[in-house]
């Protein structure tokens, strides 16, 4: 789904700096851009929270320039900040901010993960490690199911003309259907069939999002051997099973890993989507939902970042597996 990052072909005069750039230049721009993003974020906190901060200050008896909240509604946030300069720092220390500072989010994240782990309560219900584990488990099952379906579907599509003609269009259409619309129904149905808990429906939703990139990637991969290679195997009088195991499957491995990386990210999105609208009480999506219902924005932000970290870790793990496998197979760069 996402395109592979394009490789720029450097002109001859550029190649000299390439070795340096690949080590230093690779991370420096990213760090600079990240720093700019964090800076903009910090700057945005004051205007986002100033009304909250002024309301709070007014309740605790401080003098605020337009005195009532209704009068303040008429004034822009920029004027409020200019008129109450000594109250601006308070927008950075709200308990329930409209926009928390990166520091607050990091603090909340640490308080619900590392700190609880140090106290030996990593699997407590208030710990994000516990919720991340619940999400990870469903993601894993969904990923397994989706990958199996995707690979099986790809093999069927490559080997059977009927399946290719009848299934491929529906596979594409299935991805244009917004799965969230189906999510509550999947949960109702699986409850009727007698499946307890939300693990299975969540895994089904995540498999639904995950199978497609694997299917498309594997169809491409299994068809990637050229005619010359297939003909060579024919001259060896190889059976179709042999040509599958010895040619088609090995040559599809790079495609497989590329689509697995997209697939695992999609599976995580699927699990969280499965947790969001369905009243789940465990999992990162459920933390977001509960944070919304109880009006604790910090919990939402912490859960969001935990999900992002989880996605990053999963994709990185697959990337490492990809490099190791391709190197063993002699296809590594």
């Amino acid at each position: 789904m996402t395109a592979a990052p394009a490789t720029t072909t450097p002109g001859p005069f550029r190649t000299a700096g390439r070795a340096l750039r690949s080590t230093v230049g690779g991370t420096l721009p990213v760090l600079v851009v990240l720093a700019v993003i964090v800076g903009i974020w910090y700057a945005a906190v004051a205007p986002m929270n100033i009304r909250l901060a002024l309301d709070q200050a007014e309740r605790s008896g401080a003098t605020v320039v337009p005195e009532t909240p209704i009068a303040r509604q008429e004034v822009s946030v920029w004027r409020l900040m200019a008129q109450n300069p000594d109250l601006v720092p308070q927008s950075y220390a709200q308990d329930r901010p409209r926009l928390p500072t990166p520091g607050q989010v990091a603090g909340e994240l640490w308080a619900t993960t590392g700190e609880m782990a140090l106290e030996g309560r990593a699997m407590s219900r208030r710990s994000l490690i516990f919720h991340a584990w619940v999400t990870l488990r469903s993601t894993f099952w969904g990923f397994l199911l989706g990958t199996t379906l995707g690979i099986a579907g790809a093999i069927a599509i490559v080997y059977s003309r009927v399946v290719n003609l009848s299934l491929m269009p529906w596979a594409i259409i299935s991805q244009t259907i917004p799965i969230v619309a189906l999510a509550p129904m999947i949960i109702v149905l699986s409850a009727q069939v007698g499946i307890e808990g939300r693990g299975v429906p969540k895994a089904i939703i995540s498999a639904y999002l995950c199978y497609f990139p694997v299917l498309v990637g594997m169809v491409k991969g299994l068809r990637s051997p050229g005619t010359a290679q297939l003909d060579l195997l024919k001259t060896y009088s190889a059976s179709s099973l042999q040509s599958f195991w010895k040619l088609r499957l090995p040559s599809s491995v790079p495609y497989l890993f590329a689509s697995l990386k997209i697939g695992i990210a999609a599976a995580l999105v699927g699990t969280i989507v499965g947790e969001l609208p369905t009243g789940a009480i465990r999992g990162l999506g459920a933390r977001i939902l509960i944070g919304d219902q109880f009006g604790t924005p910090l919990a939402i932000w912490a859960a969001l970042f935990a999900a992002a970290i989880l996605a990053g870790v999963l994709v990185t793990l697959l990337d490492v597996a990809q490099r190791a496998t391709l190197k063993r197979m002699g296809m590594g760069r």
Partner: peptide, 27 residues
Amino acid sequence: FLTRGLLPIGNFVAALPIVGIAPILVS
């Protein structure tokens, strides 16, 4: 410089479960 800084970040963010931001934006 910006391209090389933003492309990896964009690639990463594109893979994130951004739907989770919905309750924040609704508020």
